[in-house]
Design a protein around this nucleic acid. Structure first.
Lengths: 149, 149
DNA sequence: ATGCTGTTGAAAGTCTATTGCAATAAAGAG
DNA sequence: CTCTTTATTGCAATAGACTTTCAACAGCAT
């Protein structure tokens, strides 16, 4: 898996060790279809027989986030969910953390939306207030294609 | 206070009673300079000698939110904070809940930004994925005017 | 293979938010 | 103004997400 090699390289670079639990979480996130919460990660890993403590999941998320490998979003509720970093700059600063999430009200599924033009628009609006933009979080709620039908 | 009258009218309209705790929370929010969390509300009220239980604060927030009088945002951390409703539609759906927050990384202050053009842009981008937009949350991080100086 | 030190797992703790229930008080009826 | 109904409050207990502490363990540099 390409992502795993990439991730391990960056972890090493940052002085982190490559451990079994870390590899497991990385693989899980790489396979995941959408953002995953800490408890979901633990349950999914345990389901495939890979024992891991919830505390470790949290710590691993923390180190992956520090390294810039994953990004945390606050999707539907108040639970943080993780996605591996996308690499599609949107024109805003924080190019490594560009996620515009579409969160479906009924099925809870989260899609990532690419919206390149939004950057300059927001940067300009913020600038008029003297605010220096560094990061952004954009979360949209509604009905996904399948649920709307 | 104009806001208090407005709020009481809307509560009555919606069939809610006007109680002392509710009046206190409404006044507090009307005076607040930025978004306030439930526990902050309780502490600030108790500090001025107005005893209130945290459970009631949560329930009151809920009823004010239902009535469209306040809006909850997830600012810096994972704690919900409340602001009284602005009345500046931005072109997105959810016209009563239009908040684009600028959150300062150093001082934590939150400013609301008005950005009218963003609506059609996002609606179009979401539509290409077949997503029916209903609500949005936009939170921008960075340095405010004062901290950047 | 060995030792140093970063990491893990388990238990207990913190913090935000919610639920159930008895006591209280708002608002309309008389 | 008092009574009655019923929404609302406060308290205690609970839920859920995340963190801290610390002993045991396992990378990895040598």
């Amino acid at each position: 898996m390409a992502y795993r090699a990439h991730a391990e390289a960056r972890l090493k670079e940052a002085g982190f060790r490559i451990t079994t639990p870390r590899r497991r979480v990385i693989d899980l996130l790489a396979e995941a279809v959408g953002p995953v919460s800490a408890y979901e990660m633990r349950d999914q890993l345990e389901a495939r027989g890979e024992r891991i403590d919830i505390v470790s999941v949290y710590r691993i998320i923390g180190c992956l986030e520090q390294t810039g490998l994953v990004h945390r979003i606050l999707s539907t509720g108040k639970v943080h969910r993780c996605v591996i970093e996308a690499h599609e700059p949107c024109g805003l600063p924080q190019p490594d953390h560009c996620h515009h999430s579409l969160i479906c009200r009924t099925c809870g599924r989260i899609e990532e939306m690419h919206c390149p033009d939004i950057g300059s628009l927001l940067a300009r609006a913020a600038a008029t207030l003297g605010f220096a933009l560094e990061s952004h979080r954009l979360e949209l709620g509604g009905l996904c294609k399948r649920c709307a039908a």
